[in-house]
């Protein structure tokens, strides 16, 4: 019985982990290229969640259709934010971009609150389950996982097989070197920031397919913290590292939940959070460059 439950948690954990990983790739991409830490990360995820709500509850459309729209909205917000603030702060002390991304997060939260209010919302997209014997897997969660893997693959191909992606990699390696090769470094910064935000907003759609409840303007904070743990697991500057970091994190979170539930008198959910941050602390102490080696 416990064993079956554990198996179920491992599978569910890996599926959730893929979504977590995808939800961290934008953070790592932006840090890798611009060395900017997006402290408002979770607020951009929240925007994606509200886009999903709008698609499902208001328009009555399939949440999957919200993914490209969320990505496009993220690109637009990212470009706007880059050109109005980030561009001017790149050579300023790091605190400036931290404050700017933090403020952008607050701005998004309060704007969404003004429009939609602050109550918790949710939606119910029931398209059946797949029975694996030891666990039942909702098809919507499976879609969220497949969507995440697909987006991660697309990003990988774009980075490694296209000219724009290669230019971006060269900027990550050495921006001055890229400049003397004729790469438009400013343009590459703007593009990677926009793509990073686009991925993050799109991940808000995938995350709510997984957890379609508790959607409110302030839901992002928890995701920001998780994304930091995952990004550090994956070596901070690599989007693929982040993806695998997400798999590890989802696995740990879900499995430890089952194990903690066995302990009498313990609230397992709170303990899994505790565990996440213990992991973060330990990694930072023993291997601050991340445990996963990705190029």
């Amino acid at each position: 019985m416990i064993f079956e439950q554990l198996m179920g948690n491992i599978v569910q954990g890996l599926i959730l982990g893929a979504v977590y990983g995808m939800a961290t790739m934008g953070l790592s991409l932006i840090f890798g290229v611009l060395k900017v830490v997006n402290v408002g990360h979770g607020a951009f995820i929240m925007v994606g969640a509200f886009i999903t709500l709008f698609f499902f509850n208001t328009l009555g459309l399939n949440p999957l259709l919200a993914i490209p729209v969320a990505f496009a909205v993220g690109l637009a917000i990212g470009l706007l934010f880059y050109h109005t603030a980030i561009k001017r702060l790149l050579n300023a002390p790091e605190l400036a971009t931290l404050l700017a991304t933090f403020s952008a997060g607050v701005l998004l939260e309060e704007s969404i609150k003004l429009i939609f209010g602050s109550e918790f919302r949710g939606y119910n997209w029931d398209i059946g389950n797949i029975d694996l014997g030891f666990t039942a897997l909702p098809v919507s969660k499976l879609y969220a996982c497949l969507g995440s893997v697909l987006i991660a693959l697309l990003l990988y191909i774009w980075f490694n097989r296209t000219r724009a992606g290669t230019a971006m990699r060269s900027v990550v390696e050495d921006s001055e070197g890229a400049r003397v090769c004729g790469v438009n470094v400013q343009g590459a910064y703007a593009m990677s920031f926009a793509i990073g935000i686009g991925l993050t907003v799109a991940s808000g759609v995938l995350l709510t397919m997984f957890i379609p409840v508790g959607i409110n303007p302030y839901m992002g904070g928890g995701y920001t913290l998780k994304a930091f743990v995952i990004a550090v697991l994956g070596g901070l500057a690599s989007p693929y590292g982040a993806f695998f970091g997400g798999l590890v994190f989802g696995f740990i979170e879900n499995t430890s939940y089952t194990l903690f539930a066995l302990l009498p008198g313990v609230e397992p959910f709170a303990l899994t959070r505790f565990l996440s941050f213990m992991i973060l602390l330990i990694i930072l102490l023993i291997r601050p460059t991340g445990i996963i080696k990705a190029k």
């Binding site: 060269s170 001055e176 070197g177 003397v180 004729g182 790469v183």
Partner: peptide
């Protein structure tokens, strides 16, 4: 004129301190 357009026009700089792409 932005740097990348200057490179396009045929101006090249070999920067001090190499600035290679070490992982390529």
């Amino acid at each position: 004129t932005p740097s990348h357009k200057k490179v396009h026009k045929g101006m090249a700089l070999v920067p001090e301190g190499k600035h290679l792409f070490p992982n390529m």
